[in-house]
């Protein structure tokens, strides 16, 4: 009997074993990450805004993955940091040319998660793409347009582009220009508009809304109303209040002005030779003679 015979359950191919271990470690990390993410969402969904909780969950998830890759997967595969650096230098050059935009999107995604100019659930305008942020992934940002369309914007474009975040500040202002007739009482109109703004629950007490005559136009006295609202409610208020103002002004015999031109007709025909003459009433009489 040969005593040196070893009974082993391990596969004979070490590379197969290493790869299996690496896959198991990554799978384990994914399961742990997902479990923690689900736990966080269940436990804190009432306490955090959806975007914040999503960001925390993702940060924890990717951190677990990175730790497992750095401290378990790479050592199991026998890869050392120094060799990675050397290999990384060569591979980096190749990848840099081959996948410039992918790496750009990845890095932009990381910076977006750190800087957080946008969060999930916020209403934004990214380079003309308006909508609600649905997700901020590593490579792209997902937006649900106001028309319900799915928009995927590469993170590089998001990071380097102009972003307008409509709800980042807690309060915002919107303006109305309300043109009334010259024959109407502007002071009365201002009083009515102020009362309507004051009566609306979502118009803020401070900063105070302003209502004033802004322009004496060609066809109207233009009253400007500058109204502050909570950022989450401004659009509702904007769409509600204007029509209420219009109806209430009309109920008080104040009409919204529209472009018009008053024409004065002479009593008789005017000869072409007299075109440059005085067209006042006395001038007309002189021409007729």
């Amino acid at each position: 009997m040969n005593n040196s015979t070893q009974i082993s359950f391990l596969p004979e191919d070490p590379l197969f074993f290493k790869i299996t271990m690496a896959i198991l470690a990554i799978t384990g990390a994914i399961i742990i990450g997902k479990t923690i993410t689900i736990y966080l969402k269940r436990s804190f969904s009432d306490d955090f805004r959806p975007g914040t909780l999503e960001l925390i969950s993702k940060t924890i998830y990717y951190t677990i993955l990175l730790i497992v890759i750095a401290f378990v997967v790479l050592p199991v595969l026998g890869l050392k940091a120094s060799s990675l650096l050397v290999a990384g230098g060569v591979v980096g050059i190749i990848l840099g040319f081959a996948s410039q935009s992918i790496v750009g999107n990845l890095i932009s995604g990381i910076f977006l998660m750190v800087e957080r100019p946008i969060e999930i659930g916020q209403q934004v305008d990214i380079e003309g793409n308006l909508g609600t942020v649905e997700d901020v992934n590593i490579f792209s940002t997902i937006i649900r347009g106001y028309d319900g369309l799915y928009l995927r914007i590469p993170n590089e474009k998001v990071f380097t582009g102009n972003i307008t975040n409509y709800v980042e500040n807690v309060a915002r202002r919107f303006d109305y220009d309300i043109g009334i007739r010259y024959s109407d009482d502007a002071d009365q109109a201002i009083g009515i508009i102020k009362e309507l703004i004051e009566a609306h629950p979502y118009t803020l007490k401070q900063p105070e809304s302003l209502v004033f005559v802004n322009n004496l136009g060609d066809n109207a006295v233009v009253i400007k109303a500058r109204i502050w609202c909570p950022a989450t409610e401004w659009y509702t208020v904007k769409t509600e209040l204007l029509w209420t103002i219009k109806k209430t002004l009309e109920n008080n015999n104040i009409e919204i002005a529209f472009p018009q031109r008053t024409l004065w007709f002479a009593n008789g025909p005017v000869s072409k030779n007299n075109e440059d003459k005085d067209y006042t009433e006395s001038g007309m009489e002189e021409n007729i003679k």
């Binding site: 980042e168 500040n169 807690v170 309060a171 915002r172 629950p201 979502y202 803020l204 007490k205 401070q206 900063p207 502050w228 909570p230």
Partner: peptide
Amino acid sequence: NIKKFTLYGNPNDGIICKY
């Protein structure tokens, strides 16, 4: 009662309050 809100602080770092 009348429902009204206000801003305490600035729009960028303040808070919306019931008024």
